[in-house]
């Protein structure tokens, strides 16, 4: 399987926060083969372990989050429409006439309803309804839906992937399973005896609703040091912030108070010596990622944050650059093989 195919396969899975275990079987078959062991904990964290074969070796945590933003069914309306609420920060501007999948007793296709402009009162044509007032058109009757779609059913964006020019990929769920795919590729590329320690790859739960999966998994695991990977905003023309990494510049390495300065410097040095493209990204405080909680988990875990720049985050049409994803794979490979880092941070 190519990296592109693994990204599409993983990102297509429905993993709306709270439903992470729906993907357990597919994860096992898609990536289980790259690891010695898989464990699923009480919150839906999926832990994949690859051992180096040396007793007492350092415990290296590689974290990407499994969950994604989405919606949840809260009501069934006359005519075969569903009411929903958001789970995590869904971009409502992409919803009208958007396509969704309703993961009920069977997976139903749906379209987010919208009223024709010429039938709206003059002042309402530019207004966006709050998500709680939007409706999903399913093509079933109310009675059929009551049978097929229990309240609480997760709803996700319809997985549709398009390759754009310049090695760009467009689709849903890159946040953060694209990073997960890069982690698996990077880890799989290192033979066990070349690992600097035992690698614990955590596909963590509940990041989008407050990082509670990584918090508890970090506490339970007590790794010696950790690499967190998440998506970041790539530079776009209409962003006020011109310091965002342009897409195609490789891995973004965060400089932040919540991550470990020395580990960050060593990781950047590793990228420099191995000619892995990267840019430093200033995230002085809150990084909006699991790095926020892992640094302070248990007695504190030295953490470094690497990011994949994407556009239109939290939409059904996120865009990533394959050259950045490949750089991220190389960075993971270098990180888990680094004896220097293991020497400094291993217990």
């Amino acid at each position: 399987m190519t990296l592109n195919q693994l990204i599409v396969s993983l990102c297509s899975l429905m993993t709306v926060s709270g439903n992470e275990t729906c993907a357990t079987q597919e994860l096992q078959s898609l990536i289980g083969g790259a690891f010695d062991e898989m464990q699923v904990d009480a919150l839906g964290n999926h832990l994949f372990i690859k051992r180096c074969g040396r007793p007492g070796a350092p415990k290296i945590l590689v974290d990407t989050h499994l969950d994604e933003i989405g919606m949840m069914v809260t009501g069934i309306r006359e005519g075969g429409f569903l009411s929903v609420i958001n789970i995590g920060g869904v971009d409502t501007r992409i919803l009208p006439a958007g396509e969704v999948a309703v993961y009920g007793k069977q997976t139903l296709y749906g379209v987010v309803a919208t009223s024709p402009v010429h039938l709206l009162p003059a002042g309402d044509t530019e207004k966006l309804k709050p998500i709680g007032e939007m409706l999903i058109d399913t093509g079933y009757s109310k009675e059929e839906l009551e049978e097929l779609v229990p309240l609480g059913t997760p709803v996700g964006f319809r997985p549709v992937y398009t390759e754009l020019a310049g090695g760009r990929l467009c689709g849903k769920g890159f946040d953060d399973k694209a990073c997960g795919a890069c982690a698996v590729f990077g880890i799989d590329a290192v033979p066990p005896r070349e690992l600097a320690g035992d690698v614990y790859f955590l596909f963590s739960a509940f990041e989008e609703t407050g990082s509670c999966g990584a918090r508890t998994a970090g506490f339970g695991l007590r790794p010696d040091y950790a690499l967190v990977m998440d998506v970041t905003h790539a530079r776009i023309p209409d962003a006020e912030d011109r310091t965002l990494s342009p897409m195609g510049s490789g891995v973004s390495i965060a400089a932040s108070a919540v991550t470990n300065r020395r580990l960050t410097r060593m990781t950047a040095e590793l990228c420099r010596t191995q000619k892995i493209p990267f840019l430093m990204e200033a995230e002085p405080g809150n990084t909006g990622t699991n790095a926020n909680v892992l640094g302070n988990a248990a007695e504190g875990i030295p953490t470094v944050l690497l990011s994949l720049p994407i556009k239109s985050m939290h939409s059904a049409a996120e865009v990533l650059g394959m050259e950045d994803a490949k750089a991220l794979c190389q960075a993971v490979k270098a990180f888990i093989s680094s004896r220097e880092i293991a020497e400094v941070f291993g217990s």
């Binding site: 971009d91 501007r93 992409i94 939290h314 939409s315 865009v319």
Partner: peptide, 17 residues
């Protein structure tokens, strides 16, 4: 192929949303 881009929700003001 192309996509009509959107500024991510994180970068929008509450009013713009």
């Amino acid at each position: 192929k192309g996509v009509i881009a959107t500024k991510a929700i994180h970068m929008q003001t509450a009013e713009k949303r």
